[in-house]
């Protein structure tokens, strides 16, 4: 009996080992492939902003900038909306509305990135462009809105990212809110709290997990590729302007990987991938840690 159980454990464990080793293999493989670039440029790779494959000059600062800028902007837009949805579904809405709303947010998450991108090119970008044109000149003078009204650029990318991030953040935030004991809300109500004040108490109780939910959305935004690639304008520059076409780490890999003729170029792109891998690893790890501390291990599972 015992020995057969061990056989069972070993055989299923072997598959589990495959799963775990894939993550290690990704890290190893990306490091190996990017060694050339790491050795040649060192830390300068991340501090310089000249991206000139022809001259063999590779500085990835614009991509880091574009990735962080677009993701943080998206987060600023998406977080209040996502928490609002989570609160509405878990605390406010009539029970019959709950399932349909959950389904719709799931659908929002399930629509392929490429479809968002297609919609972005043909619907969102023209709309953003007319918005940019309609902006009064006095505002256009600000660095935030400088540059020609192209439509493609940071604003379009951030908007589309926000749409894509909302369902992730709201789903996790909803799960986290569900783990708040009813007693917390009751305690607030019993002291004469309004509905808002009682929900605020619940959100406060769940704050760690909600920060985790927001970070999970951040992780998604950082790695999002197709939709962003199609609307951000793909121009490697460090600009504060919302209207400026910029570039992200994921987008440059998507666009230039097959064109990378020489080894250094390829290594530079893989290095960007490696850093993207590490950043998302850290962000997701932190976010899961927060969600787990909040909800205990059982509910943390829902956040996967």
């Amino acid at each position: 009996m015992r020995s057969r159980d061990i056989g069972f454990r070993l055989s299923t464990g072997a598959f589990a080992f495959v799963l775990a080793s894939i993550v290690v293999a990704i890290g190893f493989e990306l490091s190996r492939q990017s060694m050339l670039s790491i050795q040649k440029f060192g830390f300068d790779f991340w501090r310089t902003s000249t991206w000139d494959p022809v001259a063999g000059q590779f500085g990835a600062l614009p991509f880091i900038w574009g990735t962080l800028y677009s993701s943080i902007l998206a987060l600023l837009i998406a977080t209040p909306v996502a928490i609002g949805i989570a609160v509405f579904i878990s605390e406010l809405c009539p029970r019959i509305l709950r399932t349909p709303l959950v389904f719709l947010t799931e659908l929002l998450a399930a629509i392929p990135s490429i479809v968002y991108g297609l919609w972005g090119i043909f619907v969102l970008v023209p709309a953003v462009r007319s918005l940019e044109i309609a902006l009064p000149d006095s505002l256009r003078a600000l660095p935030l809105f400088s540059g020609p009204p192209l439509g493609v650029g940071m604003l379009s990318a951030a908007l589309i990212l926000a749409v894509m991030v909302v369902p992730f953040t709201s789903t996790v935030a909803r799960e986290v809110l569900r783990t708040v004991p009813l007693a917390q809300r009751e305690a607030a109500y019993a002291l004469g709290a309004t509905q808002f004040e009682a929900i605020r108490a619940a959100i406060f109780y769940a704050r760690t997990g909600i920060v985790g939910a927001v970070m999970l959305g951040f992780g998604r935004a950082l790695g999002e590729t197709m939709a962003v690639t199609m609307v951000i304008g793909n121009n490697p520059q460090v600009s504060a302007s919302l209207f400026a076409p910029q570039y992200t780490m994921a987008a440059v890999i998507a666009n230039e990987f097959t064109e990378a003729a020489d080894e250094l170029y390829l290594a530079a792109l893989v290095e960007i991938g490696l850093v993207l891998f590490i950043i998302t690893l850290v962000v997701n790890g932190l976010s899961r840690g927060l969600i787990w501390t909040m909800a205990g291990r059982k509910s943390g599972r829902a956040a996967a």
């Binding site: 004991p181 007693a183 917390q184 009751e186 305690a187 607030a188 019993a190 002291l191 004469g192 709290a193 309004t194 004040e197 108490a201 406060f204 109780y205």
Partner: peptide
């Protein structure tokens, strides 16, 4: 006022727990 079967303090300091009702009201 109401006191519940299981104690349900807010995850705040002792002082803030007692002050909560005073503050919101």
């Amino acid at each position: 006022g109401m006191v519940f079967q299981k104690s349900n303090p807010f995850p705040k300091s002792i002082f803030e727990n007692v002050a909560y009702g005073l503050r919101i009201n």
